[in-house]
Simulated scan of single mutants.
Amino acid sequence: MASNLDTLVTVFGGSGFLGRSVVRALAKRDYRIRVAVRRPELAGHLQPLGRVGQIHAVQANLRYPASVEAAMRDSHVAINLVGILTEGGAQTFDAVQGSGAGAVASAANAAGARMVHVSAIGADENSPSGYGRSKAAGEKAVLSAVPSATILRPSIMFGPEDQFTNRFAALATISPVLPLIGGGLTRLQPVYVGDVATAIADAVDGKTKAGATYELGGQEVLTMREIIEFILATIERKRMLVSLPFGLAKLQALLLQFAPGALKLTPDQVELLRSDNVVSDAAKAAGLTLEGLGITADSLEAIAPQYLWRFRRTGQFAHRGA
């Protein structure tokens, strides 16, 4: 049987939040890893995750199919992690998450490689959100080119470098009021980035069903309000929570879409919050979940305090009840 050392895995978007966890998981399993990113000179932080020469960064941009084909040369498996939360310039949802995903799948097909594609639970061709529609278009393009591809749809991911828990914690340090869009009633199933990376590595190992779509959610289903209350308790800050109807939130987002950092909010993100982001009953019944892969999900409560302490007034030296 061939060793994983003989298997070259090309990870598109491997330098980002999910990417570094995926590269770490693959390196531990002895795969050779080619990280295809727009700026390979900014991917140096991945090198310590593997042995000398195990991880190699190359340039590729999903909007340029020739660069994608070059990155796939001699590769056995393609993993597509490329995604954007907001649009900017040529980086549109359709270009990156729709036709971009199709470009990776076409290159994988031409190379005779297997394909693992990371989408999102919000993927739906009828979604009111451009993000959700482009994710659905990407899935369709991938399965059209590589019918045996494994598609993984995580719920919202959390972890040390996330743009989710860190964002609300950062917002709480600069604002006395936090908005609850739609009353904070949207249900989410936050999933630890390390668990999603394990599922991706399992797919590379061949443990997933060909052509199947998996939905990956964490231990608990929580409302947006419950998540924000948990973050505030963790960073030991009291803030006023104010309900903001969707219509008003969308108007506010028209102004905040150009704001920096944690303040940024786009109308498309408001649309996404109109729908719950949880694992479907159909996926559970079919065993197309983390549990179905034999992965026990880590909880938000177990992981988030390990990195959110930096948002406390006195950081790691804070005392409970002080």
Rank of each mutant, 00 (worst) to 15 (best):
P305C: 12
A286W: 00
T92C: 13
V118G: 09
F93E: 04
Y31Q: 05
G183F: 06
D74A: 12
S119Q: 13
G50D: 04
E87W: 01
A302G: 06
G132D: 10
G217Q: 07
L216H: 08
R274T: 12
A108T: 02
H319K: 07
R153L: 00
F311P: 11
G194A: 13
I303H: 10
Q163V: 08
A145F: 05
G98M: 03
G321L: 05
A111I: 03
N277G: 11
N80K: 01
S119G: 12
P245C: 04
I235R: 07
Q316V: 03
K250F: 08
Y214D: 15
R114F: 02
D281E: 14
L300I: 06
R63N: 14
I235Q: 04
G122P: 14
A283Y: 05
K135P: 06
A2I: 00
A105T: 03
P65N: 05
G315A: 04
D124T: 11
N61G: 12
M1N: 14
F164C: 09
V177R: 00
E87R: 04
F258P: 12
A120R: 14
A111E: 15
R187E: 11
L290P: 10
V52P: 06
D6N: 14
G287N: 11
S275A: 15
Y64E: 10
P160C: 05
L263K: 09
T7Y: 06
L42A: 15
V96W: 05
R51P: 09
S148A: 15
I33Y: 04
A210R: 13
I151P: 04
H117C: 14
V68G: 15
G88S: 10
L5W: 01
E215D: 15
S75T: 05
T223M: 14
A70E: 15
G14V: 00
A169E: 02
L232T: 11
I33Q: 03
G16Q: 10
D74Y: 05
M115T: 03
S134I: 01
S243W: 00
K207P: 09
V96C: 11
T266Y: 00
G44Y: 04
I55D: 09
G98F: 00
L273K: 00
S134V: 01
A203I: 01
N166T: 05
L256W: 00
V116S: 11
A282P: 12
L62R: 00
R225Y: 15
G247N: 10
R51V: 04
T198I: 09
V52T: 05
G183P: 09
R24L: 06
I174L: 04
G112Y: 01
G183H: 05
K140I: 09
Q219S: 15
G14Y: 01
I181N: 05
F311Y: 12
I231S: 07
S280P: 05
I295K: 03
A282M: 08
Q219V: 07
V35M: 08
R114N: 13
A95T: 00
T10G: 13
M157D: 13
L26A: 08
D281S: 13
T173N: 12
Q306H: 14
F246C: 01
P260T: 07
R320G: 14
A137D: 08
F246D: 07
E87K: 07
F317D: 10
I121Q: 15
R34I: 08
G13C: 05
G315N: 07
A259L: 07
K209N: 11
Q257R: 03
K140V: 11
S15K: 06
G13T: 02
A78Q: 03
V52R: 00
K264G: 09
Q47L: 14
R310G: 13
V196L: 08
D6L: 01
V23R: 03
